[in-house]
């Protein structure tokens, strides 16, 4: 195990954990983006180049923007931010549940007889190979994902649209309204 893995893991976990505990939504969103970038670094470390860049492009480039826009569009007043009385109980419950899950998962991972790769040489997948797989074995999945993304796009637009219909074909006035200085 290399130092690089430990650093990547610590940065990713740390920024994710801090992001989940911060009050300031923008800060936590930015830290989460750092955590996603850390995951991309993990993919790069593991030799999955294409996936790493895809993760960067999708998460750091696109999802981050959607998240930040959503945060800004739903700005709350300060009063809303006040902690509700049941929040502490919920946090304790969440920590207990999360800790229990963590314990179970750690126990399972450490004790399970995991298969170890027979060959020491790492497998690498070239982009060409991936493209052929995508168009060959996984062509159906590719089509379905395309349909899913289209549906998601339309659904998101319908959900977020205000329902207020602009009259069709209205373009901003071609001629700027005359502004005359009253003198």
């Amino acid at each position: 195990m290399s130092i690089a893995f430990l650093i990547i893991a610590l940065v990713t976990l740390g920024s994710a954990a801090v992001a989940m505990s911060l009050r300031n939504l923008i800060h936590s969103a930015l830290l989460l983006i750092a955590s996603w970038a850390g995951i991309a670094a993990f993919y790069l470390w593991a030799g999955a180049e294409f996936v790493a860049f895809a993760q960067l492009l999708v998460y750091v480039g696109a999802v981050s923007m959607v998240v930040l826009f959503a945060v800004l569009l739903t700005r709350q007043s300060r009063v809303d931010m006040a902690i509700a009385p049941d929040a502490l109980r919920r946090i304790v419950a969440a920590l207990l549940a999360g800790g229990a899950t963590l314990g179970v998962l750690f126990g399972a991972v450490v004790s399970a007889p995991l298969p170890i790769a027979a060959s020491a040489t790492p497998v690498t997948v070239s982009v060409r190979q991936m493209g052929q797989e995508l168009m060959g074995t996984h062509a159906a999945a590719l089509l379905i994902v395309g349909a899913l993304l289209t549906v998601a796009l339309l659904g998101a637009i319908i959900l977020a649209s205000t329902g207020r219909e602009d009259p069709p074909g209205v373009a901003p006035p071609a001629v700027a309204p005359p502004t005359r200085k009253t003198s």
Partner: peptide, 10 residues
């Protein structure tokens, strides 16, 4: 799994 639990707790 640690990352999963961080997400879960959040």
């Amino acid at each position: 799994s640690a990352l999963f639990c961080v997400g879960l707790i959040g």
